[in-house]
Amino acid sequence: MNDEKNISSGMSEVVKTVCNIVEGFIFVFGCYIVLYGQLSPGGGFAGGVILAAVFILIMLAFGKERVLKIMPRKRGAFIEALGALSFLAVAWAGLYVSGIFFKNFIPTTAASHFKLMSGGTILIYNIAIALKVMAGLFLVFFVLSITRVILEGDKLKMVKKQ
């Protein structure tokens, strides 16, 4: 059908232009939310969702070919697993370094309070969660969007497009 072609090649020129301008800002904002999670509202999950929104935005505006160039499915799955693994690794490092699972083993001083590095391991956890959520949420959206209903004869039929 006609609109299928439109979807695969993305939306109109206006949307594409605006998207080009905005996507960098959203990405930086997501990174900010992740990095300042231990000091202000936000954190790994919220920031990760914003980062995933960047990819979803690109996918909606330009079609999935372009987003697959940045983040193929395999790479997404790998980043997701990597995020979870690094989270676990830091948790286990607490057990290894100071004998207690999940122990915050990076020392923090009173002088560093309310600064970026005051959270100890929490910052690393946040980054790990953000990686996981970003890749995971993007993949969920992507996998759900590759099936599409088309009209075949007088029956609706669902096709999968890779």
Binding site: L82, W92, L95
Partner: peptide
Amino acid sequence: MERYIYLILLPLGGAFIIAALNAAV
């Protein structure tokens, strides 16, 4: 008591190691 930690840590780690391998290999 540390042994019980590994009962949660091992399968969780294993699940994600297998997932990572699945994507990389």
